[in-house]
Write a protein that binds this DNA or RNA. Structure first.
Lengths: 156, 156
DNA sequence: GTTGAAATCACACTATA
DNA sequence: TATAGTGTGATTTCAAC
């Protein structure tokens, strides 16, 4: 089940099943079965195997934040004082709903986060009144995403 | 249906439905109905409304790339020559499967991308043999994500 | 270990009020 | 928003390869 790189081995049929479901998690399993020419029960068993291997990490409905008026996405690089530990900062960032991602990175900054705001004014408020109020945050650098042109998962 | 900010108005029941489905896209609608105390048909109608409004942008199976041996995530800031147009660069980046996101950003770089690789060596190959081979790419700055500590959608 | 057919149960979806 | 009704899919079992 594992090859010498300690990564899971999946065959062509697994890949086909996953490609369908990664596009549309609610696609009926029997429809997939018909498309790739095996029985529904076979797909069930493969999915259970993939789930127990940990490869399948669940399914999500994707919502379009623009429709709710959230149009400004930005990345923010954060410099932390040496005294401030990363876990404590992350704990504070978690409380800010506009923060969607948080990465502990090599390079310039201590932390790189992705935020989603309604507009530039909202972004400014998040920066000034929330992020820079966190103890230990010394400086930030903001990069507004004018346009996200690629957004996808790993290709299999 | 729209308020004065031109954003969609959704009520508490819509939010509850969405919260269930954003966690698990395959959760049975009747189960949600039982949990929040309304009929399945009512949920159907609300989902149709939300879908036609464009808020629901589909559903996805989420896979865990670690299980496939992909453990190195990085952000790469790309400087483009003035001669190189952004759309042409994006077109080339789309061909690189390791590129998961691509943002046209304000600030230092022309483009900020997110890549997912098996390990540091793989990342180096993607950088040297793929990204820096693109015509018009003058320089790059790489930030490896040692640990992604937050990953979520917009909170509703 | 993997597959497919059959059978049961539960759900999706529509019409109607 | 709920009820009723029909069609369809999910899931298990079991036999066969």
């Amino acid at each position: 089940m594992k090859n010498n790189n300690n990564s899971l081995k999946i065959d062509g049929i697994d890949k086909k099943i996953l490609r369908y479901l990664m596009e549309d998690a609610r696609k009926p399993i029997l429809e997939i079965a018909r498309n790739i020419g095996i029985s529904g029960a076979a797909i069930h068993q493969r999915l259970r195997k993939l789930e127990s291997s940990g490869l399948l990490a669940g399914s999500k409905f994707i919502i379009n934040p623009r429709v709710l008026g959230y149009t400004t996405m930005a990345y923010i690089g954060i410099f932390l004082d040496k005294a401030m530990s990363n876990p404590r900062a992350v704990k504070e960032l978690e409380k800010i709903p506009e923060v969607l991602e948080c990465h502990y990175t090599t390079g310039n900054w201590s932390i790189l986060i992705k935020v989603l705001c309604r507009d530039n004014e909202h972004l400014m408020q998040v920066l000034n009144k929330k992020i820079q109020q966190i103890e230990g945050v010394s400086r930030t650098e903001t990069f507004i995403s004018l346009n996200q042109q690629i957004d996808r998962q790993i290709q299999i």
